[in-house]
């Protein structure tokens, strides 16, 4: 039995989310193979070969994978699964926007179900996943020959990035489907840690009032704590911060050591994205705000007074 993990990367480096996915794969029992489909991605393949617990790295390096399009990547994954002639029992990817884009396509082409965002593994065919914004946890059993699964990275520790010595093997290229073309990317540049990997997150909501306030009030605190910045949907919709700051059911799922929710009311869709944080602090001027029901430490205060005080005190 081989478990195929789809590497997430930008042709230059292996994304951390892949390490959490390898840990999930290790819980299934079987040989772990990582597929690196990229263009000029030798460094990614080399990094994948060093990940602890990985038996094999399958590499396909071709222009068709430069932009990681769902169409080309899915066709390649399916080709690898078919070429293995039944040896691949599971296909896993992190439940990031990249993984969610590709894996349903893989599943449909294999005529199997896809199992989204698993948070626990009961056995090789039985998994736990949140539904209804995490207000319920469903245990589901798959009857399909190949299990195609996205993994919620916050639910699995990262595998060690060093220590492995996997064999690297080239696989045949499935080709360019010619269905889509990348026009461009506008990636948010930041020296701060990534939301998904940060130990501390400072998150702001509609209570920030404006983009200027968000930056002037929250950034100094985040800088002092070495924290990542996050936001509620309302703050993103209002244009205070870019879309990739959104934490929640339909944004990013985070579980840092410390999550500071500032001017966020605590709607279920927001809680879905942060309630597994180790320690939650809420600063809100409304004592009735639902965020206080999940906060370990709540402070009823005007954020424009409390946050600068906090920045000065830490």
């Amino acid at each position: 039995m081989t478990i195929l993990v789809i590497a997430e990367h930008d042709n230059a480096s292996l994304k951390g989310a892949t390490l959490n996915t390898v840990s999930a794969a290790a819980k299934l029992g079987g040989d772990i193979a990582i597929l690196v489909a990229g263009s000029g991605a030798a460094a990614v393949a080399a990094a994948a070969a060093k990940v602890a617990g990985v038996a094999k790295v399958l590499v396909v390096d071709a222009a068709a994978f430069a932009d990681q399009s769902a169409e080309n990547l899915a066709a390649q994954v399916v080709a690898v699964v078919k070429a293995a002639g039944g040896a691949i029992s599971h296909v896993l990817a992190p439940a990031t926007t990249a993984g969610k884009n590709v894996l349903p396509r893989v599943a449909a082409l294999l005529d199997v179900a896809q199992i989204s965002e698993i948070v626990a593994i009961e056995s090789a065919d039985t998994f736990v996943r949140p539904i209804y914004a995490g207000n319920a946890l469903a245990t589901v059993k798959s009857a399909d020959a190949v299990k195609v699964i996205t993994v919620r990275t916050t639910a699995f520790e990262a595998a060690a990035a060093e220590g492995g010595a996997a064999a690297v093997e080239q696989v045949a290229e499935a080709g360019d489907q010619g269905l889509s073309k990348l026009v461009g990317r506008e990636l948010t540049k930041s020296a701060r840690p990534e939301l998904g990997a940060a130990k501390i997150i400072v998150s702001g909501g509609r209570g920030m009032g404006s983009s200027e306030n968000y930056h002037n009030v929250l950034e100094p605190l985040a800088d002092k704590l070495g924290a990542a910045l996050g936001a509620s949907r309302a703050a993103v919709d209002a244009g205070y911060v870019p879309n990739d700051y959104q934490v929640g059911q339909t944004g990013k799922i985070v579980a840092p050591q410390l999550y500071l929710a500032v001017g966020i009311s605590g709607a279920i869709q927001h809680l879905a994205g942060m309630k597994d944080s180790k320690v939650i602090v809420a600063i809100n001027k409304d004592p009735e705000a639902p965020i206080f029901q999940v906060a370990d430490y709540g402070l009823v205060a005007d954020l424009f007074e409390a946050v600068p005080q906090l920045t000065a005190a830490v």
Binding site: I115, G298, A306, Q309
Partner: peptide, 24 residues
């Protein structure tokens, strides 16, 4: 259906926290 739901449970509840008086 390809997937069978074996059970659905409530997630673990966070235990109630405390309110603090001030930033200090």
């Amino acid at each position: 259906p390809r997937l069978t739901t074996l059970k659905v449970v409530e997630p673990a509840k966070r235990s109630a926290g405390v309110m603090v008086a001030d930033v200090a």
